[in-house]
Amino acid sequence: MQLSFAKEISGKGASLSLAFVVDPLSTRKAFNDPGVALMRAAQSHGHEVFAIEAASLGWRKPEAGHPGGVFGELIHLHLRPDDHDWYRETGREWRPLKGLDAVIVRLDPPLDREFLAATWLLERAEADGVRVINRPRALREHAEKVAITEFPQFAPSSLISRDMGQIQHFIDEQRDVVLKPLDGCGKVPVFRVHRNDPNRNVIVETLTDHGSRTIMAQIHLPEIGQGDKRILLIAGKVVPWCLARIPKAGETRGSLAAGGTGVAQEVSAHDRHLGETLGPLLLKRGLLIVGLDVIGNALTGINVTHPAGMVEIRQQSGFDSAGACITAIEHACGLS
């Protein structure tokens, strides 16, 4: 599918039923939540908007008196512009997912057992003809930090291991590294460790749980001072603006949840090339909404679950990434 960002497209004239699989609505912070931005954009395009809290997903065998298949509790929403009071429920019902025009998965990491269970169920729904975005199998197969191993030509010097000896050797070799868990987001513990750091042993022991948990080690990239860039791909195409998340003083993490400052920037020629290289491949696998994490010119992660940055990019540049996503979903559903 080819999708141009030359124009904003809205008000399609045909209504879709769009259900968003989310973490509990009570946990969403509408002022910067890209999932809320997508729901608002869907409503502004004239579509029916439902939320399905992931805990309500289930499957039942078809039998007399019950259609069977994957089901959930659909919460019919009316979205409001007030970030402190951002929705009204207009109804709830338990029903099969079959019959919805699209189900959009917007779950935060970690990719734990319940996340996997949701993808297993949604894959069954997909087999019954439900359009699921991003595809459940692709969500499982693209662990967001491990995904860079497929594209080593773009990645910084990195090690993935739980062997403490290998990790210690990498620290000695690279001299200045960042250690981080493979899952989680936002405020997960990320440590910058120098070769002569007196706390390096306890940091390695703690993060790996004494060698029982796999972690990632990467060479420290001084370009983090200019921001950890989130580059959005929508339907395989590069959004012309990215969000540089600049760490606060004394911090290694640029994430907004860790106190970083988000600054919208035009995408550089290098980052556009990166996105144009990866975008079509990821789209072919069923990943319609993707966030690339880039520090300097190095690819450090591929976010496929709940990439942020849409709200800040629109506020600062005027580009409506959420609206572009809904347009892409409309195209996927056959609306011209």
Score class of each variant (00 low, 15 high):
residue 1 M to P: 09
residue 2 Q to R: 13
residue 3 L to T: 12
residue 4 S to N: 05
residue 5 F to C: 10
residue 9 I to V: 15
residue 10 S to D: 05
residue 23 D to H: 08
residue 24 P to K: 09
residue 33 D to K: 00
residue 34 P to Y: 02
residue 49 V to C: 04
residue 49 V to S: 04
residue 53 E to V: 13
residue 59 W to L: 14
residue 59 W to G: 03
residue 72 G to T: 09
residue 80 R to S: 04
residue 81 P to A: 11
residue 83 D to C: 06
residue 86 W to A: 07
residue 87 Y to D: 01
residue 87 Y to P: 04
residue 87 Y to C: 04
residue 94 W to S: 15
residue 101 D to N: 15
residue 125 A to M: 08
residue 130 V to M: 07
residue 131 R to P: 04
residue 134 N to A: 10
residue 134 N to H: 10
residue 138 A to S: 15
residue 141 E to R: 08
residue 156 P to K: 01
residue 159 L to I: 05
residue 160 I to R: 05
residue 163 D to S: 12
residue 164 M to P: 00
residue 181 P to C: 06
residue 181 P to N: 04
residue 192 R to P: 08
residue 204 V to N: 02
residue 205 E to A: 15
residue 211 G to T: 01
residue 211 G to A: 07
residue 215 I to G: 06
residue 218 Q to H: 10
residue 221 L to H: 14
residue 222 P to D: 12
residue 230 R to Y: 06
residue 238 V to H: 00
residue 246 I to K: 07
residue 251 E to D: 12
residue 255 S to W: 00
residue 263 V to H: 10
residue 266 E to M: 08
residue 276 E to W: 07
residue 278 L to I: 04
residue 291 G to D: 00
residue 298 A to N: 10
residue 300 T to R: 01
residue 304 V to R: 05
residue 308 A to Q: 09
residue 311 V to L: 07
residue 316 Q to W: 03
residue 318 G to C: 07
residue 319 F to K: 03
